[in-house]
């Protein structure tokens, strides 16, 4: 590799907390879907009146007696047999919201799903608080995440670059671009903070002191729905995040987040040899 050099891109607390977060989000998603499966419908408001679901995954049988999974969003119904609403567990058809390959544990087991969820929820919260605290203290937040004025000026160009899967490889690659900064800020504060708050808003004990928050979002069932929507948003974030890693040199990116060292093109070298 001619004219490249390694730069120290991610400090160790970022790396450690990033990977803790990977484990947390993986388990929280799987166990969250397990918990969702206990009542695979979402509502708006305080209550969950039958027939008033805004989203549901229902299992049943069709006219021929064959298993049928139906996903309902508002008044629209979709046949999602095999994946959502009805799927096979160990070769047996079951009515279940999300399939066994997406839930922790695999088979229907609400009690254990809750155990996983709350254990890793605490880890996620502690990790998140540690991350925000460290980011403020070390100025990681101010220096690396909050966009500068020149970042904002490059917004349009950055969008075009991303759409063309063109990634900076020189000194620019050593710092986060504007879309990265915005994506990370939203993921950390809007998604991370929001999903924890909506989780807490579902707690009957915490509602005794936080009913203003529950009312603010429209009710306890609204909080449950928002909790679910943010989980979907996290999945979307992770898909885009992993996609960007794959198209911008996955091994280099992976080394960056494991060892901290990231290889960039050395533009000084390039100009010298030009």
């Amino acid at each position: 590799m001619p004219n490249t050099r390694l730069v120290y891109r991610h400090r160790w607390p970022v790396r450690v907390m990033h990977w803790i977060n990977v484990v947390c989000l993986f388990v929280l998603l799987g166990s969250g879907l397990q918990i969702f499966n206990a009542h695979p419908s979402l509502y708006w408001g305080q209550r969950s009146d039958p027939g008033k679901a805004v989203f549901s995954l229902q299992g049943g049988v069709d006219a021929q007696g064959a298993p049928r999974g139906t996903t309902r969003i508002g008044s629209h119904a979709f046949d999602t047999t095999g994946v959502l609403g009805a799927s096979k567990v160990n070769g047996q058809w079951r009515s279940r919201g999300f399939p066994a390959w997406a839930t922790i544990p695999g088979p229907g087991w609400l009690a254990m799903g809750r155990r996983w969820h709350f254990f890793f929820a605490w880890l996620f919260v502690v990790n998140g608080i540690a991350y925000v605290g460290w980011s403020l203290f070390s100025r990681h937040l101010a220096r690396d995440l909050v966009p500068t004025r020149s970042d904002w000026r490059g917004f349009g160009r950055s969008v075009v670059d991303h759409l063309r899967f063109r990634h900076p490889e020189g000194a620019e690659a050593a710092r986060y671009n504007i879309l990265q900064r915005l994506a990370y800020l939203v993921a950390i504060f809007v998604f991370g903070g929001g999903i924890v708050l909506m989780g807490i808003a579902m707690s009957p004990r915490m509602d005794a002191v936080l009913h203003w928050l529950v009312d603010l979002v429209g009710g306890r069932q609204s909080a449950r729905t928002i909790h679910f929507i943010i989980a979907v948003a996290f999945v979307a974030f992770v898909l885009v995040h992993v996609f960007e890693v794959l198209v911008s040199g996955p091994l280099n990116q992976l080394r960056g987040m494991v060892t901290g060292w990231y290889r960039i093109r050395d533009e000084r070298e390039v100009t010298r040899h030009d």
Partner: peptide, 23 residues
């Protein structure tokens, strides 16, 4: 995994006083 329950109980009791009323 079950060890999280004690954390939840202690933190919730700390943040939400024992006399606080449900809405």
């Amino acid at each position: 995994l079950e060890s999280a329950e004690a954390v939840t109980r202690r933190v919730q009791r700390f943040l939400s006083p024992s006399r606080a009323l449900a809405k």
